[in-house]
Design a protein around this nucleic acid. Structure first.
Ligand SMILES: [Zn+2]
Ligand SMILES: [Zn+2]
Ligand SMILES: [Zn+2]
Ligand SMILES: [Zn+2]
Lengths: 170, 170
DNA sequence: TTCATTATGATATAATGTATCATCTCCGGC
DNA sequence: GCCGGAGATGATACATTATATCATAATGAA
């Protein structure tokens, strides 16, 4: 599942999503074990909920899905879990939509770029050296030291383009 | 002042900022006149406040600076003015910091990229074809139709690098 | 003028994210 | 097994950012 980061891929619509989520949880558990980090039930549950939707999901949507039966969690509970998951590279925050997505390549740290479908919400994560290079060299020309680039591209995913109206002509 | 968009520039620290703001207001007024758009006192004032700080400024900071003496404006007042100013390309929203900056090249629509100094807040706006191309070709490979890319790079500006500690080594 | 359009006032509320302190749980050392 | 500290969670309150709605005012064209 640690696919080639050079090629952005949208999850195919009919894929086995249960297995996809299970795989992500398993990988996270393995990485935490190796790092001595604690993937507690809450953190695990938040990660599961983030993966359960391939579309970005908001913190309060996560909260709303968190065991209404058991004792109610507070926002901070979710944000703390998300902080942990982000620190370990299991999820990314998409600041252009105030929402979170599972990371497809959690094994080593990276600066990702995202394609976000405005219709179905699907997200593809890329790690394109050419984009990083272009940003890096432009920044260097300006004398700017890059620390963390945010690249989030809004548009239409392949599936939505096939189904719907033609792309808007600006 | 309509400098070469190919070269990102941070405003020099000692520049004549009053003239810089005045110029932006004048250009906006001219563009509105040509377009038949109404640069009302409120919109003009919001644009002035956005330009008054070269760093990104939040909507509520704008609100707080808006004539405390006169009748108090509400958040919606500021957001409506910002919507107008963004629609006409006079300001950009930086979604990674929930704040707004004046646009250096309002004359024709463009998709900008931003360098944001984490220390002093200074922002440089770029319009780098190489970045757009890199994003465009990666998106095309994924079958994705780009609509509006968000590129906001956090880091350290030249002035802060000269003054302070050396860049962090990650 | 009259009327339609656009802009603003006013009020309420939604959505997102933090701060603080008490309590609990886990785990290593004894 | 017990103890003690570190880390994790509970609980409550609050901060920040943004939108909805309806009434009123200003503008500009017929
Ligand atoms: Zn990732
Ligand atoms: Zn789609
Ligand atoms: Zn611009
Ligand atoms: Zn700086």
């Amino acid at each position: 599942m640690a696919a080639d980061p050079g090629q952005a891929l949208f999850p195919s619509r009919g894929h086995d999503h249960a297995a996809c989520v299970a795989g992500a949880l398993e990988r996270a558990a393995g990485i935490c074990a190796r790092r001595g980090a604690r993937l507690t039930p809450i953190r695990r549950r938040v990660l599961e909920l983030v993966w359960a939707s391939h579309a970005p999901i908001g913190a309060y949507d996560i909260l709303a899905r968190m065991e209404p039966e058991s004792r109610r969690s507070a926002p901070a509970t979710v944000y703390r879990a998300l902080d942990f998951l982000m620190a370990h590279g299991f999820v990314h925050r998409l600041s252009s939509v105030n929402a979170y997505v599972g990371c497809g390549f959690p094994d080593n740290p990276h600066m990702a770029q995202f394609l976000i479908c405005k219709e179905c919400g699907a997200v593809a994560e890329m790690d394109e050296p050419r984009i990083e290079q272009a940003i890096g060299s432009a920044a260097a020309q300006a004398g700017f030291a890059v620390e963390s680039p945010v690249v989030e591209v809004r548009g239409r995913c392949p599936a939505c383009r096939k189904e719907g109206a033609p792309d808007a002509r600006p």
